[in-house]
Design a protein around this nucleic acid. Structure first.
Length: 579
RNA sequence: GCGCCUGUAGCUCAGCUGGAUAGAGCAUUCGCUUGCGGAGCGAAAGGUCAGGUGUUCGAAUCACCUCAGGCGCACCA
């Protein structure tokens, strides 16, 4: 998009101008998309809002009627370039009907762009997401975080921002100590030696670590003695004690290599990796420095941030052993990121179970680095729930991210006939991504394979199928027709008009989705577009239509394919040509 | 106990910076193929927007209360 305003904003400006010329004071004018095409393309409720506050033009009345105000406004607006007609409707809405050729131009603009670019400010934004922990499982929560973070990153890029992806991995802390404590115990239980484990493939090795963690975590809670042993191991890990170092380094590498395999499947490439072991000391230093300034206080041998002062709760930043907790590490992470990339905005995507914790953290950050705190934005997502109960890595009944991907692919292969493995992967991963992104990210998702894959309806495969169908129609068309853009826009069939208008809103929807960090807004828009195309496809001939209609419908087919492909890509979903 | 989030059709969810007749998908019932991919399309049926009070010309949307569920509340992350 060039510097031109979006039509919605143009209408807004026109309304504001009209109000000014009528000498009506009104701060914000709202213009929104209509839900019913009979009411035009855009509507404003401005006269309803202001009528009650205005002095009557006519002294015989004690109030302005919204209808009258709306009429005065529309008279004052006059004729606008892209507007077919203006209408005032009870009880006082002003409806704008946009010309067909404007929508055609909008759609063509999108078609011309290789990559969608809304030409917004080139903000520097760092987006942190996924954040799995070495020595623990990569579970479906991490998968969700990755899918949300990747989509948000792509949406922000589309607006013109320069986005860097960051991944923060907890390679040090109590969970690591629990795993390392659990390793020899687990080896005993299964009657194997560490050397045996080393010979296994990567997935099996990482699975072993997860089991060891689960064992350690269980015993940690069950026994005071074990608790002390694990705390001791934790101290040794921080001190890089030779008795634990070798196994620590090996386990860490296994985990990180394994995570990398999953990122590749998901289509994420991180620009920065941060490890807790690296930012821990930075954070601890900050805490000690601000302990003297009174931001932090000592309590029961630990250093805590007194959150109650800010209407929150207190949290430990440095524990009584002198080791930084996650909180202190996170405090060190903010300036470390900034050193790598002087961001305008820092977005952190996590599960919503740590919302309150994050508020405390941001309050602490506001004390030690206010300039960074104001740039930081926490986006949280809900839990992925599957029929069959809760998951907990502590109890060892966690659902692995890799399992979800494999299972989806397997089911795609079963359900589809003769689908190449590569396409099955794209459909499977796309199905999962779409299922997780089509709802509000802040809420929990009830995930079922049936809904995500095998059923029709609002699903990834439905959108991919619509795309593949468009490609198929285009492949069978005369190429010259498919490329000509000039055609008759008079007497559009309802299906054509509805589709053209929907597609024309693409950029507006992407912008809104990016601004509100809501991939679901885009997902639902794409579904609407696919539905409208399918409706046209089923009700009107395309290739066998008359000359005039064929050109027009092929253009719409091409535009639908393009919007679906670009839109799905912003959700991180591939669009196979055939499926 | 305190804090945050959630409650919309049988089920899963959109809609929430107040606006026009509350929308989809699944499931149920009926229909559409001598045509471009039927994994599709069309239609029917399905609602006390948890309940109550308030604010407003107008409330699913805002405020307050009640009920129900989820999550969190100091040395895990």
């Amino acid at each position: 998009m060039d510097n031109e305003l979006m039509i919605r904003d143009q209408i807004k400006e026109d309304l504001e101008k009209a109000l000014k010329s009528l000498q009506i004071e009104q701060g914000k004018v709202e213009v929104s998309r209509t839900t019913d095409s009979r009411n035009g393309d855009y509507t404003s409720n401005v006269s309803l809002k202001i009528a009650g506050k205005l002095k009557p033009f006519d002294v015989s009345q004690d109030k302005q009627s919204p209808m009258e105000v709306a009429k005065k406004i529309t008279d004052s607006i006059g004729i606008l370039p892209h507007i077919e007609k203006l209408e005032v409707k009870e009880p006082g809405f002003i409806n704008f009907f946009v010309k067909n050729d404007f929508w055609q131009d909008e759609v063509e603009k999108v078609l011309k762009e290789e990559v969608l670019s809304l030409g917004g400010p080139k903000l520097k934004i760092i987006v942190e997401f996924t954040d799995p922990n070495p020595f623990k499982e990569f579970h479906i929560g991490h998968l969700y975080s990755n899918i949300v973070g990747e989509s948000i990153s792509r949406l922000l890029e589309a607006t013109g921002a320069v986005v860097k992806r960051a991944n923060y991995q907890g390679d040090i802390g109590m969970h690591v100590a629990k795993t390392i404590w659990g390793i020899p115990k687990l080896l005993d239980q299964i009657g194997e030696k560490f050397e045996d484990i080393e010979k296994k493939d990567l997935g099996a090795r990482v699975f072993f670590l997860g089991q060891a963690y689960s064992l350690g975590a269980k015993e940690f809670e069950a026994s005071q003695g074990v608790k002390a042993e694990i705390a001791e191991i934790n101290k040794k890990i921080f001190a890089k004690d030779p008795s634990v170092l070798a196994i620590y380094e090996k386990g860490k590498k296994w985990s990180l290599d394994y995570f990398e395999q999953i990122y590749e499947r998901l289509g994420t490439k991180f620009d920065f990796y941060y490890l807790e072991s690296e930012v821990g000391e930075v954070g601890a230093k900050i805490v000690r420095e601000f302990l003297e300034k009174g931001v932090f206080i000592k309590s029961e041998g630990a250093i805590v941030f007194p959150g109650e002062k800010y209407g929150l709760h207190s949290r430990v930043f440095i524990n009584s052993l002198g080791l930084p907790t996650y909180e202190a590490k996170e405090l060190g992470l903010a300036p470390t990121k900034y050193k790598d990339f002087a961001y305008d905005e820092s977005v952190i995507v996590t599960g919503n179970e740590i919302n309150d914790y994050f508020k405390v953290l941001l309050a602490a950050l506001a004390q030690v680095a206010p300039e960074l705190a104001v740039k930081t934005r926490h986006i949280s997502h809900g839990m992925v729930r599957m029929p069959g109960g809760k998951m907990s890595s502590r109890l060892g009944n966690v659902l692995l991210g890799e399992w979800l991907l494999d299972e989806a692919k397997k089911r795609v292969i079963e359900a589809f006939e003769e689908v190449p493995a590569e396409v099955a992967e794209q459909i499977g991963v796309g199905a999962i991504k779409y299922a997780l992104l089509k709802g509000n990210i802040g809420q929990d998702v009830n995930f079922t394979f049936e809904e995500a894959i095998s059923l029709s309806g609002n699903s990834g495969p439905y959108l991919q199928y619509a795309y593949a169908r468009c490609r198929s129609v285009l492949a069978k068309s005369n190429k010259q027709h498919a490329k000509s853009n000039k055609f008759d826009l008079e007497n559009l069939e309802p299906e054509e008009s509805a589709l053209l208008r929907t597609l024309g809103h693409f950029e507006e929807v992407v912008l809104d989705a990016a601004e509100s960090f809501a991939p679901s807004a885009l997902a639902n828009f794409l579904y609407e577009a696919a539905q409208k195309y399918n409706s046209l496809y089923n009700n009107l001939p395309i290739l066998k239509a008359g000359e005039k209609e064929r050109g027009r419908r092929l253009f719409l087919t091409r535009a639908t394919a393009d919007v679906l492909k670009k839109g799905l890509s912003l959700l991180g979903i591939a669009a196979p040509e055939k499926m």
